[in-house]
Structures are given as structure tokens and as C-alpha cells.
Design a protein around this nucleic acid. Structure first.
Length: 313
DNA sequence: CGTGGCCCCTGTGGGC
DNA sequence: TGCCCACAGGGGCCAC
């Protein structure tokens, strides 16, 4: 679901609602969406099984419902104050006054909502973690919830801001400030398609399938071109296009295709910026050539064969 | 080592 | 109406 503009919009709307609040209760409904530092392999490590071992959906659900270890609720900021909400790329972090950090990754369908007192949630299923919040004065501030139907997202508990910084240092520069040199440093020698390199969060943090296609269109670069074949001026144009589309999409509060909502439940309007994503077969807004689509890096990719020529535009 | 392919999940929309 | 299939905004892991 969310790329950088959507996560930044969640960050802002969430900060408005929960910054300064104290956590007076934590409910963990699904232990397996949470990864603590002592979990083996740092989470996300799911065993490889044959279809027979995997069983039916119901069997898997029952297996997972018996979660192994308890989570220390203080690691999820119980009795702590939420002093800051940060973002790098597509990742969000609640920073407690104690220094503890809760890193949230929304994956494809994750959302963080903070309904005020009395405000209803849009959906009551797939709520994996719930926090109860109080204002500094002690009044109720409602709740904050993590919901994620597909569970490609997750929550990592980290002991210190330094541990958070260490994690984020493994990602590339944030998309809002990416430079041509930054892109070239991360992907200039890669023999992958340039789109695959953009989707790799070590190249640039925050670009996903929508904004990869949109930034390639804006810079006139075909998604299939080998990253190592791009010139310095190609990287420069591409970086400029990434900064531009991302910041414009933030202004419009993100792209709501179907599920995405900000922390207050509001959809965003950034789909109005889309020139190629979701428009395969329709005509290019710039030159009227029908837009093409093809799988690149296992993701549906849409581009204009005329505005984005296969070799050096 | 870098890379492509497969997998993790649930929900939805289209075709029959 | 119901069934089956393809597809969806992400990314980890493994065999090459």
C-alpha cells in the first residue's frame, strides 16, 4: 500500500494526534507481527515449507495463533510518553521519552490509525496491536492501532535511538532528498534494470512501484534500461524527478488506490498526479502513444515507449 | 558478490 | 449465485 508520500502523511497526521501522549495500555493480539531484538533471525524469517507442510489457510491460522514468546509491553512504550514520530523511506518510528523506539513497517496493506475518543475505526478486523493513550493532563486521547490484513508489514522494538539510526543507516538516502550522485553511488554499477534498482531500498529509501514508474516517465528513462548504462545526467534527471513526484504526492497527502488512509482515516488525492501507473493501454498524456506494460523485477511496469526510449533518451 | 525467482498473506474484481 | 484465477501499494530468502 504505502510508499514514501503515504507514510509521510501517516507520520504527520499521527503526530498531530499522539505526540506528547502517554501510553496507558497495550494489547497485542498477534505476537507474530512483532519482532524483538532477541527473536532469532531478526524476524521476517519464515520457514520454507512444501505445500503439504504448509497446510490450509485455517491450519496456518491456528498454528500462528499460538505465539511463542511474550512481548514486554514496555518495549511497546507502555507507561512511556510518545515524544517523536520519525520516518525514513517507507519506515515509521515512534520514539518514547525513555529512548525506546517502535519501528513500524506497513508492508502492502498496513495502516496506523489514531481515532480520537468516540471516533470509530473504519474496520475492526486484522487489528494486531492496540495502544490506549492519555493526554499529558490525564484525559483520554483515544487509541492508536496497527492493522494489517496481509501481514506483510510488522513492528520492530528497538532499545535506543541509536539502534534505530543503525537500522536506517542500512537503507539508502531518503527519496525526498535523493541526488543524482546518490543514485549513481547506490546503483551505477548494477547490472539490473534501472527500475529494479529503484525498488531496492538500499539505492533510495521510499520509492515503490507507483513512484518508480512515475519518476522514470518524468525523466524519460525506460524502466528496462540497465542501471549501469545510465549517464550522470540520466541519474541527475531521475533524482530530480523522484524528489519532485514524491514531494508533490506528499502535498496531496498520498495516493489512495483502494485501502490507504492517513492516521485520521482520510484518503489522499495524489492519484491525480499519476501519468503511467495504472494506465496501461491508454494513451500517453504527453504524446498520445499507447502506454506499454511488462513485468520488470516481478512488478507490473507501465511506460511510454516513445517518451521513454529503450536507449539513451 | 549480485541477481532473478519464489514465497509470505488476505481480499477483490473479472470471467465463466 | 458461486467458483476459479489473476492481481495488488513490499520485501526476505535461496539457488544460481
Amino acid at each position: 500500500m504505502p510508499e514514501l508520500p503515504e507514510v509521510e502523511t501517516v507520520r504527520r497526521t499521527l503526530a498531530d494526534r499522539v505526540r506528547g501522549c502517554t501510553v496507558s495500555g497495550v494489547i497485542v493480539r498477534r505476537r507474530d507481527v512483532i519482532v524483538t531484538p532477541d527473536d532469532p533471525a531478526g524476524g521476517f524469517s519464515r520457514q520454507r515449507r512444501t505445500p503439504a507442510e504448509r497446510g490450509t489457510r485455517d491450519e496456518r491460522r491456528i498454528r500462528r495463533s499460538r505465539s511463542p514468546r511474550r512481548v514486554e509491553k514496555s518495549d511497546l512504550l507502555l507507561d512511556d510518553q510518545i515524544s517523536d514520530i520519525r520516518r525514513h523511506g517507507k519506515q515509521l518510528a515512534l520514539v518514547g521519552e525513555s529512548g525506546r523506539c517502535v519501528l513500524i513497517h506497513l508492508g502492502m496493506t498496513g495502516e496506523v490509525m489514531a481515532p480520537g475518543p468516540g471516533q470509530r475505526l473504519r474496520a475492526a478486523d486484522h487489528l494486531h496491536v492496540l495502544w490506549t493513550l492519555r493526554q499529558p493532563g490525564g484525559d483520554s486521547a483515544g487509541r492508536m492501532v496497527f492493522r494489517d490484513p496481509r501481514r506483510f508489514g510488522g513492528i520492530w522494538t528497538l532499545p535506543t535511538p541509536q539502534a534505530l539510526a543503525d537500522r536506517w543507516a542500512q537503507l539508502g538516502p531518503d527519496g525526498l532528498t535523493i541526488t543524482g550522485e546518490g543514485l549513481a553511488r547506490g546503483a551505477g554499477r548494477s547490472r539490473r534494470a534501472v527500475k529494479a534498482a529503484l525498488l531496492d531500498q538500499r539505492t533510495v529509501a521510499g520509492v515503490g512501484n507507483i513512484y518508480a514508474d512515475e519518476s522514470l516517465f518524468r525523466s524519460g528513462i525506460a524502466p528496462q534500461r540497465l542501471a549501469s548504462g545510465l549517464s550522470a545526467s540520466d541519474w541527475e534527471r531521475l533524482a530530480g524527478a523522484i524528489r519532485e513526484i514524491l514531494s508533490q504526492a506528499v502535498e496531496l497527502r498520498g495516493s489512495t488506490l483502494r485501502d490507504y488512509r492517513d492516521a485520521g482515516g482520510l484518503p489522499g488525492d495524489a492519484t491525480s498526479l499519476h501519468q503511467v501507473y495504472g494506465r496501461s493501454g491508454r494513451s500517453c498524456n504527453r504524446c498520445e502513444t499507447p502506454l506499454s506494460d511488462e513485468l520488470v523485477a516481478q512488478r507490473t511496469t507501465v511506460w511510454c515507449p516513445r517518451c521513454q526510449p529503450a536507449e539513451n533518451g
